[in-house]
Every structure is written in C-alpha cells, then in structure tokens.
Simulated assay, not measured.
Amino acid sequence: MYSENSRESILDAAEELYYAKGYAAVGMDELRAAAGVSLKRVYALFPSKNDIIKAVLGRKHDEWESMLTSAVAAAGDDSRARLLAVYDFLQVWFGADDFRGCAFINAFGELGGTIPEVAQIVREHKASFQEYMSRLVADTGASEVLAAQLSILAEGAQSTAAISGDPQVAVQARGAAEVLIGAAVASA
C-alpha cells in the first residue's frame, strides 16, 4: 500500500510539474520534494526520469480518453452531435486555468527527438485519437477522409489555443468542423 501511495504521489507531482514547467526543467530533487518522498524511494519505484515521464504520459492518455469519451457520450445518439462534442470538450479544456496545451505535443516537442520511447508513446496516443475519430465518422456514413480532417482540426486547435491562450479557438474549430461534416455527409 505504501508503495502504491508513493508511486501515485510521485506521478501526481511529476504530472503537475512537467505540465507547468516542461519535462527537462524539472529535476529529480524538485520532483522528490513536491511528491514528499525520498530520492531513494523515487529511484526504487522509477529507475530513471524517463520511466517517470513514460508513466505520466500513460496516465495522461487514460485521462484524455476517459474525459473525451464521456463528453462524446453525453451528446447522445446523434452522430453529428457526437463529432461536434469533441470540439465542445476542447473548449472546456482550453478554458481551464492551468491549460498549457497538449501534454503529448509538449513532450514530443521537448523530448521526441532525443527519447525514442517518448516519440512512440506520443505517436500511439495521436493514432488512438485518429482511430476514435474514425469510429465517430463511420457512424455518420461519411468518408474516412473526414476523420483525418477533423483530427487535424482538433490537433491544430490544441496548438493554437496553447500559443494564443484563447479558448475561443475551439469555437472556431467547431464551426469549421460543422462545415466539413455537413459537406461530407451530403456527399456520402
């Protein structure tokens, strides 16, 4: 039990610190202090900083999928509403006080070129989102091309909102998604 509590404390602290400051900027001493555990305990649970980063990204992936699928499910059975719920979800996320962009895009930008495992985790996360969008698009009867377009739109909105600090980017992306969905469904 103590081991699991320590592990969660370390991951909670790492997630918060990495998201706020960046992965490279956070040292093990700062992480240890924020988690309230000894450095020896940190290394007993995570032999390297890369192991902590990979675990944090794994948790972020699960959190993202859970929140996104809940938001989409709340939109009901209408296939168009379910697709647009993705952008409504983004608007809420972009408006959060601690929004600093996509943790995966941030990790890739900072570490993807030097830590192949991080690059792979990010690619898998983004592929998972693309597959999810493909399933949502299939429910509309539209072409698979729409899934790629809507995914790119969502990814671009994440980057733009992080840089601009404007949650309204999601509203603009939703408007563009409506146009794309309407055109794709009409031609299906």
Results as ranks from 00 to 15, higher is better:
5 N>E: 14
7 R>T: 12
7 R>L: 07
7 R>V: 05
9 S>W: 00
12 D>T: 14
13 A>W: 07
13 A>P: 10
18 Y>R: 03
19 Y>P: 02
20 A>W: 03
20 A>Q: 14
21 K>P: 01
21 K>C: 10
24 A>Y: 04
25 A>H: 01
26 V>N: 09
28 M>L: 14
29 D>M: 04
31 L>H: 07
31 L>A: 04
36 G>M: 01
37 V>N: 02
37 V>R: 02
38 S>N: 07
38 S>Q: 05
39 L>H: 13
39 L>V: 12
39 L>A: 12
42 V>Y: 04
42 V>P: 06
45 L>N: 09
46 F>S: 03
49 K>A: 04
49 K>M: 11
49 K>I: 04
51 D>V: 04
52 I>K: 09
55 A>T: 07
56 V>D: 09
57 L>N: 08
60 K>R: 14
62 D>H: 06
63 E>N: 07
64 W>R: 09
64 W>F: 15
64 W>N: 07
64 W>A: 06
64 W>C: 02
66 S>G: 06
67 M>D: 11
67 M>F: 04
68 L>Q: 01
71 A>C: 07
73 A>H: 05
76 G>R: 10
78 D>S: 02
78 D>T: 03
81 A>P: 01
82 R>G: 00
82 R>K: 13
83 L>W: 03
83 L>G: 08
85 A>L: 02
85 A>K: 00
85 A>F: 01
86 V>N: 00
87 Y>T: 00
87 Y>P: 00
88 D>Y: 00
88 D>C: 01
89 F>V: 00
90 L>R: 03
97 D>L: 12
99 F>T: 09
99 F>C: 07
100 R>L: 03
101 G>Q: 08
101 G>P: 09
102 C>G: 07
102 C>A: 06
102 C>Q: 06
103 A>N: 08
105 I>R: 13
107 A>W: 10
108 F>H: 15
108 F>K: 12
109 G>D: 10
111 L>T: 11
112 G>D: 05
114 T>S: 15
114 T>I: 13
114 T>Q: 13
114 T>R: 15
123 R>T: 10
127 A>S: 13
128 S>N: 12
128 S>H: 13
128 S>W: 11
131 E>K: 13
131 E>M: 10
136 L>D: 01
138 A>P: 04
138 A>K: 15
139 D>H: 11
140 T>A: 05
141 G>V: 10
142 A>L: 07
145 V>I: 15
147 A>Y: 02
152 I>F: 14
152 I>V: 14
152 I>E: 12
154 A>W: 03
154 A>L: 07
156 G>M: 11
156 G>Y: 10
157 A>F: 02
157 A>R: 06
159 S>K: 11
161 A>W: 09
161 A>P: 07
161 A>E: 08
162 A>C: 10
162 A>H: 13
164 S>Q: 12
165 G>L: 10
165 G>Y: 13
166 D>H: 03
171 V>I: 12
174 R>Q: 14
175 G>Q: 15
175 G>T: 04
176 A>Q: 14
176 A>F: 10
177 A>F: 01
177 A>W: 01
179 V>D: 07
182 G>M: 01
185 V>G: 08
185 V>Y: 02
187 S>Q: 15
188 A>H: 15
